[in-house]
Design a binder for these strands. Sequence first.
DNA 1: TGCTTTGTGTAACGGTCATTCCAGTATATA
DNA 2: TATATACTGGAATGACCGTTACACAAAGCA
Lengths: 201, 201
Amino acid sequence: MARTQEFDTSKALGDARRVFWDKGFDATSIADLEAATGLGRSSIYHGFGSKRGLFDAVIQDYMDTILRPRLTLLHNPAHPAEGISTYLTSLSDALEKTADQTTNRGCLLLNTAAGIAGNDEALRLLIDGYQVELRDGVAGALRAADPTQTDAMVLARARIVAGLTMGALLMARVNLGEALSTLEAAGEQAQLWLPAGSQAR
Amino acid sequence: MARTQEFDTSKALGDARRVFWDKGFDATSIADLEAATGLGRSSIYHGFGSKRGLFDAVIQDYMDTILRPRLTLLHNPAHPAEGISTYLTSLSDALEKTADQTTNRGCLLLNTAAGIAGNDEALRLLIDGYQVELRDGVAGALRAADPTQTDAMVLARARIVAGLTMGALLMARVNLGEALSTLEAAGEQAQLWLPAGSQAR
DNA sequence: TGCTTTGTGTAACGGTCATTCCAGTATATA
DNA sequence: TATATACTGGAATGACCGTTACACAAAGCA
């Protein structure tokens, strides 16, 4: 039918992600995106419609390839008590892996929440939805590890883990060590909620 | 010696704060600031040097008039056990006060943290310093309420309260109710750390 | 009252931004 | 092979950005 696309879409999304993650949406220019992806403006606009279209595609890709896979760690059928600690250490590892670069990135989605999300209903709902997924994932892990907890207790504890996760990811942009320590404190607190004898690790 | 300034500096800082808080630094234009403050460009540049100079002044003013005063709530000599819950409810009240409006959600400083690129070392240090103040303030309150805790225990618990505070403030921009519930969960968890009989409230 | 100094208003500047246009290129199908 | 179709390169566009230049206005001091 026609000419074939020369660039690899998922590679381009990964390259663009890096720039948006470092600089944020506003501070990223089309020229930055051209340089990072190797694409020309034409290809960017043909493929994604606009800067915002590319950003939305990047966010979607980020959720699919990074956030969601990590959420599944919370659900560990064989060893229910280990879900939360596995999740938290996975997060710590990911944060440390970006530590060698000059910028600490935290979480692309949460950085976005602090920026444009307030004035952008669609983005707000997206981020809120993810927060619910995270919190409920933690709640499921808590429930599986100790079915005797009341619903209210599970919810309050899930909020603590999810809230600390977000606090740590935000702080990672400013002080990586403190962020890692916060995740560690979250893990230790979660251990205390496990019934004796089922402690992870 | 010369002509007197016609505008009230602290009013101007408050007006500018509202815009920066709502839209973030990048997305705020000089025209926005003119409209919000009622000042002309000349006065802005004469008084603050640049857009960034005004922003820095706004941040300084924000810390002096909002953040620091609230931090003092953590230190309650008469009733040490009440410091943390007083602080958290003060925060909740402040968040709820913005419930009707869509703007000014969360914390100006933490929103800034998510937005800064790696090159702004000064801003990074400022935000990190505040985080330390918050965490150590909580640690002081915990220690005062129960001097029998080990240092490691105090630090870990302080990280939990401070981390949850940041997580809630970030989330406030996206889901206010969830943010308030997170603060509540933080308060309840802190209650459990108090020695029996000294429970606040 | 004149003079100096500082604050304000207006207009313009160069630069950068996201976006568009158009000509040219490659390819799958007919 | 011919052709319709989709992709790409490069230049141009108009809008908006932060900042500056300059003329004028007000107020303290002589």
